[in-house]
């Protein structure tokens, strides 16, 4: 098997130049998908007969929550690649993924709270999903705190990778535990309106928004990683040439 592509992928410079060409396309795609999804969801999808128009926040809340969780795994996997194959680019991707994931988790919490006000009459309820999301937020903060504590980049990357991998093993356990905790304490009358019974006209725009959010995530991750590359490789000739060219 030809492994050259793999090693080339490990070169920050190659990544920087390649993604520079992809970026406009990806940005356009994201913008189109997101506008279609939002306009469709906010203006054309039918009104929920129980919740009225307030349900429309799911077009933000659900995709963001998706990516908040997926982002943790993306972060852990890229960290593992960097740790096992000593690939600096993967370490940089991991470092970039942490704040993005934390921001998405925060957004999911905030949008959930805003949704909670008209639905439950209060901003905060100790619902299983919200509690899990909060724990996920702390997991991200832990990774970021560990990351910045090391002065040595190699150590920072490896240490936070170990933590992220332990997190990967634990997230299903944490989620399940919080679920059980919720049933043990038999939460009050409140119940989440669940997605499965969703009308297709409501569901398709949501699907578009989820795909749009994945594109958005990829876009932001690439941008963050590019910034990290330029920052770390600022001593090298090619980055300095980049500066002079502009």
């Amino acid at each position: 098997m030809n492994w050259q592509w793999f090693h080339r992928l490990g070169s920050p410079r190659w990544f920087y130049e390649k993604t520079g060409r992809w970026l406009p396309w990806l940005a356009t795609l994201t913008a189109v998908l997101m506008s279609v999804g939002l306009i469709w969801g906010l203006a054309f999808a039918p009104v929920d007969f129980k919740q009225g128009n307030s349900f429309r926040i799911i077009y933000i809340h659900v995709p963001v929550s998706f990516l908040a969780l997926a982002g943790y795994y993306i972060m852990a996997i890229s960290g593992a690649v960097g740790y096992i194959w000593k690939m600096k680019l993967a370490d940089m991707v991991m470092k970039s993924a942490a704040p993005i994931g934390a921001a998405l988790t925060f957004l999911a919490l905030v949008s959930g709270a805003i949704w909670g006000k008209p639905t439950w009459g209060t901003y905060w309820v100790w619902d299983a999903r919200i509690t899990s999301m909060l724990v996920l937020f702390f997991l991200y903060l832990g990774i970021m705190a560990l990351q910045v504590s090391f002065t040595n980049q190699q150590q920072a990357a490896s240490a936070s990778t170990i933590l992220a991998l332990v997190g990967c093993a634990n997230i299903p356990i944490i989620y399940k535990s919080v679920d059980i905790w919720n049933t043990l304490h038999q939460p009050a009358t409140i119940k989440f309106t669940s997605a499965p019974s969703m009308h297709p006209d409501m569901f398709y725009p949501l699907l578009v928004m989820i795909v749009a959010m994945y594109c958005f995530y990829a876009l932001v991750l690439i941008l963050f990683t590019r910034a990290e590359i330029v920052n770390r490789e600022r001593q090298t000739r090619w980055v300095q040439a980049l500066n002079e060219g502009q």
Partner: peptide
């Protein structure tokens, strides 16, 4: 404490 406490959640719950 910061990095470990989230992992203590399941143990505490049970």
């Amino acid at each position: 404490s910061l990095i470990i406490m989230p992992f203590y959640v399941p143990v505490l719950i049970f």
